[in-house]
């Protein structure tokens, strides 16, 4: 990251906010925290942010009302709603107010970070069509994947999975993120259905190569990166 990403966090749960601020700072973000909707509104009007993370339920001005007001003032900073509610109707409320993404508590920090990054990218860049990591190359348009010049035989689902992992390279990706992004499911699945797909992909991607690229982080998820830390 060249310039640090400027993030506004609007969250009334101070303990949760401290933890988030700390973790975002550790990842190199420039974080400002506002403890309620009114303060959040003022902060957003004062300074320019790249992304806002807003809790939906807050005293005084709630998240949805706050974002509705900001949008009415023409502010188009991407917004991710955090919420303890997960119903479709609540999601719809959030999107109708001008939210760009919606994350239901509990979430993994990796997921929040990935979504925040995705939101900030969405505004500034068009997605790359050639993705690379070490000797792995993925041509999104030609639907072709090669590693060390050798073509990988991937089925369409595996290709989508690899593309997603590659776009989030060097970042932890959770099972929930994969279910939502690759299979488009928001259902809460208990068995690790995703793991089997990952191990099949790993068999095609890493077998016969000296450096493995696809790693499993126990208790967290998966990461596509060059070397094990």
């Amino acid at each position: 990251m060249d310039a640090p990403l400027r993030l506004l966090l609007v969250e009334d749960d101070l303990k949760a906010a401290d933890l988030l601020v700390e973790r975002f700072r550790a990842q190199g973000f420039d974080v400002t925290h506002a403890a309620n909707g009114e303060l959040g509104l003022a902060a957003a009007q004062d300074a320019r942010f790249d992304v806002m993370v807003v809790d939906r339920m807050m005293p005084k001005l709630n998240g949805v009302e706050m974002v509705t007001q900001l949008r009415a003032q023409g502010l188009e900073t991407p917004v991710l709603f955090l919420s303890g509610l997960g119903d479709v109707e609540d999601r719809v409320d959030g999107f109708a107010a001008g939210g760009d993404d919606y994350l239901v508590k509990p979430y993994a920090f990796a997921e929040l970070q990935a979504r925040v990054l995705a939101l900030s990218k969405r505004q500034t860049q068009t997605p790359d069509t050639i993705l690379q990591l070490a000797d792995l190359t993925l041509d999104v348009v030609a639907r072709r994947a090669t590693r060390a010049e050798v073509e990988l035989e991937l089925n369409p689902r595996e290709f989508t999975l690899l593309e997603y992992l590659l776009r989030q390279k060097n970042q932890t990706v959770t099972r929930t993120m994969l279910l939502e992004s690759v299979w488009n499911y928001s259902a809460d699945m208990q068995t690790n259905v995703v793991d089997v797909h990952i191990s099949r992909l790993r068999a095609k991607l890493d077998k016969g190569f000296e450096t493995p690229l696809l790693h499993t982080l126990r208790g967290q998820g998966f990461v596509l990166k060059e070397a094990q830390s």
Binding site: D13, K15, A16, L19, L20, E22, R23, M57, G84, L85, G86, K105, P106, Y107, A108, F109, A110, G219, Q220
Partner: peptide, 17 residues
């Protein structure tokens, strides 16, 4: 949902950290 999920989410985040 709000009251119980918030501390559980924090617990999860701490463990991850």
């Amino acid at each position: 949902a709000h009251d119980l999920r918030a501390p559980l989410t924090r617990l999860k985040a701490r463990l991850e950290a």
